[in-house]
Structures are given as structure tokens and as C-alpha cells.
Design a protein around this nucleic acid. Sequence first.
RNA 1: CGGGGCGUAGCGCAGCCUGGUUAGCGCGCCUGCCUUGGGAGCAGGAGGCCGGAGGUUCGAAUCCUCUCGCCCCGACCA
Length: 574
Amino acid sequence: MRFSQLLIPTLKEDPSEAEVVSHKLLLRAGYIRKLTSGSYTYLPMGLAAIRKVEQIVREEMNRAGAQELLMPMVQPADLWQESGRWQEYGKELIRLKDRHNRAFCLGPTHEEVITDLIRKNIHSYRQLPINLYQIQTKYRDEARPRFGLMRGREFIMKDGYSFDATDQGAEETYEKMKYAYHRIFSRCGLTFRAVDADSGSIGGSFSHEFMVLADTGEDTIVVCKSCSYAANMEKAICQKGNAPQDIALKEVERIETPGKRKVKVVCDFLQIKPSELVKTLVYIVKDEAIAVLLRGDHGVEDIKLANLLGVSDEDMRLADDKELFDATGTPSGYLGPMGLKIRVVADQEIGNMRNFTVGANEKNFHLQGVNMGRDFTPTLSGDIRKVTAEDRCVACGGKLELTKGIEVGHIFKLGTKYSEALKATFLDDQGDEIPFIMGCYGIGVSRVVAAAIEQHHDKDGIKLPVAIAPVQALVLNLSPKDEEISKAAQDIYGQLQRSHIEVILDDRDERPGIKFKDADLIGIPFRITVGKSFSKEGMIEVRRRTDGETVSIPLADTVATVMDLINKAGAELA
RNA sequence: CGGGGCGUAGCGCAGCCUGGUUAGCGCGCCUGCCUUGGGAGCAGGAGGCCGGAGGUUCGAAUCCUCUCGCCCCGACCA
């Protein structure tokens, strides 16, 4: 491929529409162009990078025993009605009608279609397990598409579905996929964590999200600095501390705190730390007001609270001041657990606190020297708060870190949710008809490219690892008008092509500076420069994009050197 | 869906508040000269329904109304 013929529209300046670095660079380096909000054309360089990721995904999925197929993108509504998701899925499901006025949707995912396929074609346990996947454009009508390829309405996804005869088999399949995912993201050169995306309450955890660590990530995750423990904020377990043994309990003391309502203000006034105070929040849970006790410096994790109460977090919200007063008879800011008539849920940490401060349920008064058990007893107690960096790892006790992540993959043990809904059954070895046990496994292929750029770039542009860079090498002919230089550049280009190296020849009639800048921006891993030093000393320069490491070598050795460098760079990730 | 911002040449922007010749600037593009190891220089040139519709006015990029699009924060989603 000659640069002069390729569509690589690079930009000197950042486009105003882009906010995050991957979006800016994808546009500037000529990888993508926007058609409309959330949908992008993949230009030759962008598509090449996506194809590289797809190929790695294919190889690892196949290695793990999965088979590739391709399902229709337009799906009939009746299948979705059968699973119940036509109603449940909501506005993200884009719906359309055909000329006969029959309803369809564009597939945001394919559980229905694959389950339909399997129920029609697999009837015996002897045919199980089976694991199928596809790589396809998905459509989700996102409320707010953003950050370029990071969250589009149209994106390329690998979605896989497994069908097992037994729970144990399904777990084995799940583990195989988890392993395959580790290999895939490692080969893509990503720094990532597989995070626990399940509360783990019953029978271990069967959902993991693969998060690429990057500041621009939309999710917050907790990772352990010492071991491999990592979890979603909503799922991260707070280690329950030990109660102090040797602290004498004080008497409860009523103190006037005029006009002091906020935690910080009360603490400043009483000369205590927020960790010595217990705040009382009121939630409205399905029309019932419930008090929630939390240490002053902690925050409620809604999902955990909802789980403890056994409700959906959608049925739960913070009360406003009026609702709070109606429920407790006390204005906000002076609430406390003592004497409250409504249900009280305490964070598990409260039990470890001694002689703390709470509101007195009386305007302008607080109580000090309060202790749980002696002075009040909560209706319920449990882990309902957000983890903090001060917490310790539940797995190893190591230090935790809160960091941002980009979700590039999600694996999930589905169980029989869809097989039951769609009556997808097989005969087991006893001749009993039972539903398939399913798992599903997704990878945001186009998002992987964006995430990789978030992790691999510098001020000059993209520097993707060889494994997923659009091409491996770029030959710069610095003087297309110089016959000798052009001949050498052409020679190297031809030899590399014959050696099956993906290579672009920059044959443009541009000044050297432009070629160097573009080479850095596009992020081709190996740059081979034929210019002045060739005319003078017969030397060719080979430079590695990732670290700028440069070697000068004679023409005769160039191709061998480049191949060697590419192989070494590839081997590091394989 | 709530809040905020922006639509002027391919890209980045100025002009708008305070209406008034032919709508500017930088980059890019085309032609020529010159230059050739990190986005050169000179000269000439092309390119605009000032997002769209309606209104106010003698006169609208500029003021008003409506509308469409894009971006950000949040909600939502995963």
C-alpha cells in the first residue's frame, strides 16, 4: 500500500468535538470519521486495527473450543416477546417495521436468536456442551453516546453463548472463557483486571467484567495493590473491622448544637472527627421511610442497601426534607437512631464504633457517648457502604485502590433464564427433558481499540502494540525525487511485502517533517527511514514507535532486522 | 429525560453584545517558484444558503420565535 493512495486523512489540530484522548487521536490519525452521534465510519487504519483485535478474539475463542457463526442483525419481535424482553429492554432497543407492518428490532444482543437456534437443532445431552460466538455490529440506542468509539450506538461486538447439560459443565465452560479472555486482553497489550461483578452471596461468583485501567473509564473499580482481587464499586465487599475491646463506655450526653446540621459543621463545632459521628439518612423504600445509619465519613452504596433490604434499587431513593420530617418528626440535620419509630438499618461498621455522636431527634441538639446495642438496636445491620481507599482487601488484607476502568468484556453465567423462557430443552442421560444451562460472553471489539489507545499514546500520537496496530511497518521515502533513495525505499518495501510484513510506503511528495509527524500520529510500530544518511553512508534507520529506540543499519540487513524486531515485539505479548 | 455549551470554508476559530460597503484570520486545498531529516518560505488562486424555517427592520451572521444537529455534566444503560 502506498501512502499517496490510501485514505488516511490526518488532522493537525484536535477536533473540537472530541474530549478524551482516544477519540481525539482516532480522529486526528485518520482511523475514524463520525457519520452522526454515536456512529462512526471505520477508515482503512481504524478497520485494520479492529480486524487485528477480531483475529486475536477468533484465535482464542477457537482455541477454547468455541465455534464462529453469524446471526441476523434484524430480529423478529415475537422472539423478544417470548423472552419478555420486548417490554423489558426499553428505549435502547431500536424497533422497526417491515413492509408488511411486522415488528422487528436491531439486535443489541443475541440471546433470543441463539436460544431459538439451539432449541430447534440440539436435542440431546450427547451434543453438549456447545459454545458459539459471532463478531458483528450491534445497535443500542444509547441515551448518551460519547467519547468516540468508547460508547457508540453502533459498535462491533464479539458475543458468545454456551449451552451445557449440567451446572458443573457450565462452570467449566465459564472458567474456560475467563481464561480465554485473559489471553485475549493480554495479547492486545492491555493492562486490565477481571473484576467481580457479582455479590458472591450464593455459590461463588459467576459474573466478571474485564476492565481496562484508564483514567477516562466510565466505571469506578476497586483493585487490591497486593493480590488480584478487583471488584465493581457496587459489589466490593467492605471488610468488617474488629470492635475495640478496651474502651470504656461513656454516658450519653445531650449537647446543644444550634444551627449545626451538616456532618462537617457539627464535627468542627464539637471538635470531633467525622469518623466519630454517625449520620442518619432516611430512604423512601416502596413508600416506607427507613433510617440508614452510617459513619460520618462513609457513603451509602445503593445497590448493597437494596440487596440487604431485598428490594430493587429502583424502588429506593433518598427522602426529601419534608418526607424526612413527616416520617420522624425531626428536621433534617438532627436525626439519630435513639427513639426512632421507623425501621433502622445500620452499616456493619457502626457496631465497631464506641461513644459516637448522633442527632438527638430534637432541633439544635446532638447526643454524645452513644453506643449501639446499649442505647439502640437497629432492625437490620450489614455492609451497605461504599468502599474507600482506607479499607482493606477482603481477600488478602492488602491496601486497596480506587481506580477508573473501561469495560471491554463481560462474562456471565446465565443459567436457565432464556432456555426456560423460550422452552429450549434437551433430553439428559436419564431421558428427562431439561432446559439448557447457558452462559454469555461479550467483548466490545471496537471499544478495545479505543481502550488500547487510552493506554498507549504520547503527545505525538498513537502507539499501539504490534499485535493490534493497523500495519506493522512504514517505509519513509524522504526524497521521492531522488532516484537512488526511491529505489532503496522501493526495494525494502517490496522485500517486506514478499516476507508477509504489513507495510505502507510513504511515497508522498511532502517534506520530511510531515512524514515523521504523520508516522508518529498514526502509530505504526516500526518506521524505516530512507533519506540523507542512505545517500551519504548507505545507512537505513529503523525506529520503534513505542520507545523511540533507533538503529542504523546497511540496506542489505534492513529487512532481516525489521522482521526480527517485529517478531520480538509480537512474542512479548503472545 | 434534566442542566449547560456550541453550530460562520475541509479543520481550528474571530465577527454577534451595540444590525449598515464585497463576512475575516490560521491551517489545509489548487498553480508556480523555491525548499527537502521533525508539520518551511514567497507569489497567485479556488472554496461560504453564517445549520434550517419564520419574524422584526429601509437593511439581519448579528435582534426575536420555532426547529434541527453536535458536544459536555447528570439520570439511565452495561
